[in-house]
Simulated scan of single mutants.
Amino acid sequence: MTQSLEQVYQKLETMQADLEDLRNTYKGVSKNYQEALSSLKELTLQSAEASKRAAKAAEQSRLAALNAMNAAELASKDKSFLAVVESSVKAAVSAAIAAIESAAAAAAAAAAAAAAVSQHAEEALLKASSEAADASRLAADSAAEAVKLSNQAREISDLMKKSV
C-alpha cells in the first residue's frame, strides 16, 4: 500500500507540474494575443486616418482641377491666351490624376481597416472601418468630379483651337 501511495504522489506531482506548464503556456499565449490585438487596433486606426487624409487630398485635387478649368474658361475669351488655356488643361489633368491616386490610396486604407475588422469585430474597429469606407467614397467622388472638370477644360481648349 505504501508503494501504491508513493505512485499516487508521483503522479500527482507530475500532474501538478503539467498544470503549471499549461498555466505558463496560457500566460504566454494570452500576452502574445493581447499584443497582437493591440497592434491590430493601432493599424486599423492608422488605416482609417490614412483613408481620411487621402480623401482630403482628393478633395484638394478636385479644387485644383476646378480652378484650372475656371482659368481655362476665363482665358479662352481671348484667343491670345491659348497657351494659358493649354497649361490650365494640363493642370486640370494632373489634378484629376492626383485625385484618382488619392482615391486609390483611400480605398486601400479602407480595405486594410475592413480586413482588421473581419478578424476582430470590436466596436472601435467597426467605427474606424466605417469612417475609412466613408472617406474612400468621398475620395472617389472627388476623383470623379476632378476627371469631369479636366474633361471640361479639355473641351474649352478644343473649342478655342477650332475657333483660331
Rank of each mutant, 00 (worst) to 15 (best):
M15G: 09
M15E: 14
Q16T: 14
Q16R: 08
Q16L: 08
A17P: 03
A17E: 04
A17H: 09
D18A: 11
D18I: 13
D18F: 09
D18P: 04
L19K: 06
L19C: 02
L19A: 00
E20W: 00
E20H: 10
D21G: 04
D21Q: 07
L22C: 07
N24Q: 12
G28Q: 12
V29Y: 02
V29R: 06
S30K: 07
S30G: 01
S30T: 11
K31F: 09
K31Q: 15
K31D: 11
K31P: 06
K31L: 14
N32I: 11
Y33G: 02
Y33P: 03
Q34T: 12
Q34V: 05
Q34G: 05
E35L: 15
E35N: 07
A36Y: 04
A36N: 04
L37R: 05
S38E: 10
S38A: 13
L40A: 12
K41A: 03
E42A: 13
E42T: 13
L43M: 01
T44M: 07
T44Q: 04
L45Q: 12
S47K: 08
A48S: 15
E49F: 06
E49V: 10
A50H: 04
A50G: 11
A50M: 14
S51D: 00
K52F: 13
K52S: 11
A54M: 05
A54L: 05
A55H: 08
A55G: 05
A55L: 00
A55W: 06
A55S: 15
K56D: 06
A57M: 08
A57K: 02
A58R: 05
A58D: 00
A58G: 13
A58H: 00
A58E: 05
E59C: 03
E59M: 08
E59A: 01
Q60W: 07
Q60T: 09
S61K: 05
S61F: 04
S61M: 07
R62Y: 12
L63D: 08
A64F: 02
A64S: 15
L66N: 14
L66H: 11
N67Y: 08
N67I: 11
M69A: 15
M69I: 01
A72Y: 03
E73Y: 01
L74F: 09
L74S: 14
A75C: 13
S76V: 10
S76T: 01
K77N: 09
K77H: 13
K77P: 05
D78N: 15
D78T: 11
D78V: 10
K79M: 15
S80V: 13
F81P: 01
L82S: 10
A83G: 04
A83Q: 14
V84G: 09
V84D: 10
V84T: 13
V85F: 07
V85I: 14
E86C: 01
S88P: 12
S88K: 07
S88N: 06
V89Y: 00
V89A: 01
K90Q: 15
A91P: 06
A91Q: 15
A91W: 02
A91K: 14
A91F: 06
A92Y: 01
V93Y: 03
V93W: 07
A95M: 07
I97V: 15
I97P: 04
A98G: 09
A98L: 02
A98H: 02
A98F: 13
A99L: 00
A99T: 01
A99Y: 06
I100P: 00
I100H: 12
E101K: 11
E101Q: 15
E101N: 15
S102I: 00
A103M: 10
A103R: 00
A104N: 12
A105L: 08
A106Q: 10
A106M: 09
A107I: 04
A107V: 07
A107F: 05
